[in-house]
Computed example of a mutant assay.
Amino acid sequence: MLGVHFAITAEQEKLLLDADGDDDAVSEILGDLEEEWPDDDLKVDTDKAWDAIHRCLTDGTLDPDAGDPPLSLAVAGGRHLHDEMYVVHVTAAEVREVAAALLDIDEAWLRERFGDFGDDYDGAADEQDFQYTWSNLADLRDFYQRAAAAGRAVIFTAT
């Protein structure tokens, strides 16, 4: 699954939250959002690295309820809006908290947590995988700074 974070407008947020509980409606809104998204700084692709990033920011598992906010909210720990795929909502207030917490994350911190993921991790958990994860986390950290500055909520999707 490929991960993408979008810093959404208040109008987009309302549409998605109003559709919560209706997977078809959420999927349609998400499809429109992805198709019409302007190519700007309020979107970041984390490709397959989102999995390792979430594990490092929580307890080493992919459990969306693992770890402690605000770091657990950075990828898969927010409000889930779809039953069959990741469509995870983080409020604008939470985005500010995540952005501040991510500023404390450096390469050494990530390295301490990287690789102890258990049997359900599909990545290699080697140095190349670490560098890939670190690069994507750095991009995600910068994205959260921009989303917080814009006062936006965030939607994470993995499809």
Rank of each mutant, 00 (worst) to 15 (best):
M1C: 08
L2V: 09
L2R: 10
G3W: 01
V4T: 15
V4N: 03
H5G: 12
A7H: 09
A10D: 12
A10E: 10
E11Q: 11
E13G: 15
L16P: 04
L16H: 13
L17G: 14
D18R: 05
D20M: 09
D20W: 04
G21K: 05
E28M: 02
I29S: 04
L30V: 12
L30D: 03
L33V: 07
E34T: 07
E36T: 14
P38R: 05
P38N: 05
D41Q: 05
K43Q: 09
V44D: 02
V44E: 04
D45L: 03
D45Y: 03
T46R: 00
K48L: 13
A49G: 01
A52L: 02
H54P: 07
C56F: 02
C56A: 08
C56E: 03
T58C: 10
T58K: 04
G60V: 03
T61M: 02
T61K: 04
D63H: 09
P64M: 03
D65A: 12
A66V: 07
A66W: 02
D68F: 01
P69K: 11
P70A: 04
P70H: 03
L71F: 08
L71C: 12
L71S: 12
L73I: 07
A74I: 01
V75D: 05
A76T: 12
G77A: 06
G78V: 04
H80C: 07
L81E: 12
L81K: 10
L81A: 07
D83F: 01
D83W: 01
M85K: 13
M85C: 11
M85T: 11
M85H: 08
Y86L: 06
V87R: 06
H89W: 09
T91F: 01
T91S: 15
A93P: 00
E94M: 02
E94R: 02
V98L: 03
A99Q: 01
A100P: 02
A100T: 08
A101R: 02
L103G: 13
E107V: 11
A108H: 12
W109C: 12
W109T: 14
R113E: 06
F114I: 11
D116H: 10
D116V: 03
G118E: 03
Y121R: 05
A125C: 13
E127R: 09
Q128E: 15
Q128G: 11
D129L: 08
D129G: 13
Q131N: 14
Q131W: 08
Q131M: 11
Y132F: 15
T133H: 02
W134Y: 15
W134E: 13
W134M: 14
S135T: 15
N136M: 12
N136Q: 11
L137K: 14
A138N: 09
A138W: 06
D139L: 13
L140A: 08
R141S: 15
D142E: 13
D142R: 10
D142K: 06
R146D: 15
R146K: 15
A148E: 09
A148Y: 11
A148I: 10
G151E: 05
R152W: 08
R152A: 14
A153Q: 10
A153Y: 00
V154E: 01
F156W: 10
T159P: 13
T159N: 11
